[in-house]
Every structure is written in C-alpha cells, then in structure tokens.
Simulated scan of single mutants.
Amino acid sequence: MDCISEIEIKALWGNYSFEYIFSEAVGASGGILCVWDPCYFSKDHHILSDNFVALYGTWIPKREKVLLISIYAPQSVTSKRILWDYIASLVCRWNGLCMVMGDFNEVRCKEDRLGSVFNVQGANEFNGFVSNSELIEIQLEGFTFTWTHPSFKKMSKLDRFFVNDGMLSSFPHLSAVCLDRHLSDHRPILLREVFTDYGPTPFRFYHAWFRFEGFDQMVFTTWNNIALDDRNVMIRFKKNFNFSKRRFGFG
C-alpha cells in the first residue's frame, strides 16, 4: 500500500494504544509497517527507506536504548549488497541493543531453498553481512521454510530475526516460532521470551555409589529409621526422600 490509515492499523492491532511508522510501497512491491505499544517502546528518531525502516528509541521496561530495523530486501543481488553494507554501518555505529528482522529475500545455505536455484554468491554476501555486523540469528521453530510459492513447488527460508550480544544479554530467553500461513505466501513469525520452569531440581544419584562397600546397608538402615508422623503415604514418601537427600548430601 502507498498509504495506510489509523483505522486500518487499529483493525490489525486491536485497539488505539499504538504508535506507528511506515515505508510506502513502490508499485506492487515493498511497503513496511512498524507498529508498537508506546508503554513499552519510546521512539527517538527513525530512518525510512524503500527497503527498511530503522527505529531508534528506548525499551521502557528495561530503560535501555534499542535499534530495531525491519527489512524488506530487494531481489537484485547488487541492490542487496548495497543494502547489507548500509545496514551493517548502522548496526556497527550503534551502542545499545539491536535487532534486525524481516524478509531478507536471501538464504544462508543450500538447505534453505527447495525447488529453486541456490545462489552461492548471494548467500556468501548475506553471511558476510551477518558476520561483519556481529549479529546472532534467533533459530526458528515450527516450520523449515517461511515462504511458499502458490504452486507449493518452491519454498525458501527468507524471513529471519538477528540480534546483537546486548539484546541476548537483556533477553536471554528469546524464541521465534514460525506460524501457519493464511493470507500471505509468507508465514508469520512470533518472537517472544519463553521462561520454562522445570520445577524442583531432580533427585541426583550416581551409580558409582553402589560400588562403595556398605552403601546399600547404610541407605536401608537410614530409610527404615526415619520416623515421620504423616497419614498421607505419598507425602511421607516425599519427606523420606528429602530427609535422605540432606542426610547423604544427594542432589
């Protein structure tokens, strides 16, 4: 779209608690819309291009400066080379958290394409950009390919998230999930922080302890001498384990 209204953005976002900026489409291609919640991100300034939107600002919950770059790369190898050089210069000059994301229209290895020609030069230049910018890719879960041709005979992994060390330090539990495709030929990708609670530390036991003379008898005697007054068998069993862990230094 060469223009977009707040009513249309509200329909996508769900409410009016947002700020936004967009790069207009050129003909039938391009167009980048960035929308954010002003309670979480405060924009200082931005750079607009046909192929990217760069947002400079503050991530409010952590009070840290952040650079967010959303990319829609061109098809031409030469144009992409120019884009990579420019984005790398922005990233290398930035002193803060950084994330580069979007449709890069390029793959990093042969396995990222199915049914189409793999361009070695293009992949090498793309990987060079990632390396020179000192960016780290967030691995995608869910689906291998993010773009599918309408014929389903061609598929590629074109969409990615890259972050710098600072971003990973502030958000160490980042995870990207590739979702089901509906209206677009690209799959939407959800980037989120996933905190996994595996519960208490498992009971740790070394098989080598069985080789110690008298070990079996020690455990047997100690277990039978534990005097716990609890009518619930399972709770009594659990307390026996806890007592044994403290007694022998297990776990």
Rank of each mutant, 00 (worst) to 15 (best):
S5M: 10
S17N: 05
F22I: 01
E24A: 14
A28R: 13
G31A: 09
V35I: 14
V35W: 00
W36E: 04
D37E: 10
C39V: 04
Y40S: 09
K43T: 07
H46F: 09
S49W: 03
D50L: 11
D50W: 04
N51Q: 15
T58A: 01
P61S: 03
P61E: 02
K65R: 14
Q75W: 10
S76L: 06
V77P: 06
S79R: 02
L83F: 12
D85R: 11
A88D: 07
A88H: 13
S89P: 05
L90N: 05
V91G: 00
R93K: 13
L97P: 00
C98I: 10
C98R: 04
V100C: 03
M101G: 14
F104D: 00
N105E: 08
V107T: 08
C109E: 13
D112M: 12
D112T: 08
F126D: 00
N127W: 00
G128P: 00
I136R: 06
E141C: 11
W147F: 08
H149T: 03
S151H: 01
F152N: 12
F152M: 12
M155N: 03
D159A: 07
F161D: 08
M167G: 03
S169G: 09
S170A: 08
P172G: 07
H173Q: 13
H173P: 00
S175P: 00
A176L: 03
D180E: 13
D185H: 09
I189M: 03
L190Y: 06
R192P: 02
E193Q: 15
F195A: 05
Y198D: 15
P200Y: 04
F203C: 04
H207Q: 15
A208P: 01
A208D: 07
F210A: 14
E213F: 12
G214L: 06
D216V: 13
T221A: 14
T221F: 06
N225L: 14
A227V: 15
D230H: 07
I235L: 14
N240I: 07
F243K: 11
F250L: 10
